[in-house]
Design a protein around this nucleic acid. Sequence first.
DNA 1: AAACGGATTGGCT
DNA 2: GCCAATCCGTTTC
Length: 203
Amino acid sequence: MPLKLDNAYYGNRDVLFLARDFLGKVLVTQVNGELTSGIITETEAYAGVTDKASHAYGNRRTGRTEVMYQPGGVAYVYLCYGIHYLFNVVTSVQDEPHAVLIRAVEPLAGKEIVERRRNMSVFKAAVSSGPGSVSRALGIDLGFNGADLCGNAIWIEDHGFRYDDNEIAATPRVGVDYAGEDALLPWRFFVKNNKYVSKPNKF
DNA sequence: AAACGGATTGGCT
DNA sequence: GCCAATCCGTTTC
């Protein structure tokens, strides 16, 4: 039986552990009665106030970043490039603004709904590879910002899928060149040889 | 009230 | 593989 992840799980202060542990977990959304889900295949860790790539770097608090300071177990969704909604899982304890960006999933439930939202076959890797595509495939928009991951609109389940360490690649994060030396940290995790992973997907 | 700029995507070569 | 669109929410004045 799928097990819904709880606040004790999200409260883990080790964001690198969680980013890696999310691989194989199942992200589920229910929008207007339509249930869709995907197996998480790619993530990135953002380590709060000390991470130059994080929106919360230097303890930055604005209207947008405030949700990251909540206790783990809520959604942080923001608009990127004026077009794409990017979904993060807020983790750790209150006032420690760690987050994990979900960058790709493999379609699982509600495939026909995903195909309608994306106007492409679920057999095409691009259907849900890349953070903007994940949100479009699962119907995530700004309205999900701050959503409780233990509620009934969006949550994550453990279906018992496990990946061995040698099946997981750790590489630098994508699109964070502005972060100086922190751009080099190998905090992006993805399932090797899974086609539902954004480019670059070599290791 | 106005400027800013980006955790990307997809179309084109 | 490269590169340009897109453009609105966020931040600051």
